[in-house]
Design a protein around this nucleic acid. Structure first.
Lengths: 178, 178
DNA sequence: CGATAATCGGGATCGTCATCCCGGTTAAAA
DNA sequence: TTTTAACCGGGATGACGATCCCGATTATCG
């Protein structure tokens, strides 16, 4: 791939991620191209459909999150790492929700794509959950399904004070004091 | 207003609420009209813009929820009523989220409209929270802002097992055993 | 029952947006 | 430096959907 093509592709991806997060998914491709400083044709060539742009943005973000998860797992104890990842998912989540929904609605299997790209955030969260439970930092009766539900719920939250939400949910996850 | 007009208006409102909940907000007005058994002109006349249809559906639902909240408050102790309303908000929430977002994005003040129509769910939730805290059923350090955040987060959750989410969040809301 | 005015249905209209295409441009290789 | 093939910009195209309009219908009132 030519160097300028690579540059443009990344520029479009970056711009699209930002615009989607701020203004929502219904922003016209024309506007994304304009703000990225390229023509609409360039966007279309790199991402033949708008949906493929959604997928690229989401996979890119999942890649970053996976890296963050690996760093956490390496540098901290399981409980700390687990709650830190959970908090980060919520923090960054608002902008991903719409993307995930749009893709799911179009029959695109995000989990599979992420897995294939080695960016399976879900898998890393599962591992950290188990580790945190083994270390006594999380209630052992919490299942991964519960956690996915909670994560999805928190991911969806888009209002003020996201930290308070995480705090309350985390209190619910810690082992019962009795 | 003529009797048939009234009937049609309600039929459209009911149908729209159901379709929005199941298929999302991007369903064409044409489809809503078809499923409601009327013409597109009829929909347009009762709800001049699609946005006004959104608002009508949301206000209608808030009216029902307000009624439910009042029933709960009258028939049960504060703690029970509070947790029941919270659970109900989450259960019914998924279909409201998109509506609220779409309207907020268009500069429509839902809270004000609901308040004017006597359907202020938010206000009823605040009252129940205070009552539940006075009764010792909810942690007194939880603020209404926290609760709005949690409610919004849970409202947004749209996956499997919503009850588990509510359970965990409620565990976080109850008073600390110490 | 007859008059009348509001309501109805659904086709016509208009704007928006994703996608495709083509003539000009430029990076990369020899 | 010259060649060449890929890439670029942005206008053309076509589909879709919200909204408006008009002739037909029907509820309501005297």
């Amino acid at each position: 791939m030519r160097a300028d093509a690579q540059r443009n592709r990344e520029q479009v991806l970056r711009t699209a991620a930002e615009i989607f997060a701020v203004d929502g998914l219904s922003v016209p491709v024309h506007e994304i191209a304009r703000r990225a400083g390229v023509g609409t044709g360039t966007v279309s060539r790199h991402f033949p459909t708008k949906e493929s742009l959604y997928a690229a943005v989401l996979l890119d973000r999942m890649g970053q999150l996976s890296g963050y998860a690996d760093t956490l797992a390496a540098d901290h104890d399981p409980g700390t790492a687990f709650f830190a990842l959970f908090g980060r998912l919520v923090q960054e989540g608002a902008s991903h929700r719409g993307l995930a929904e749009a893709l799911a609605g179009s029959g695109f299997d995000i989990e599979a794509a992420a897995s294939a790209a080695g960016c399976d955030v879900s898998d890393r969260l599962r591992t950290l959950l188990t580790a945190a439970q083994d270390a006594g930092a999380v209630d052992p009766t919490v299942t991964f399904a519960d956690l996915k539900a909670l994560t999805a719920g928190c991911l969806a939250y888009d209002g003020p004070d996201p930290e308070r939400v995480v705090d309350v949910v985390c209190r619910g996850l810690r082992p019962a004091p009795g």
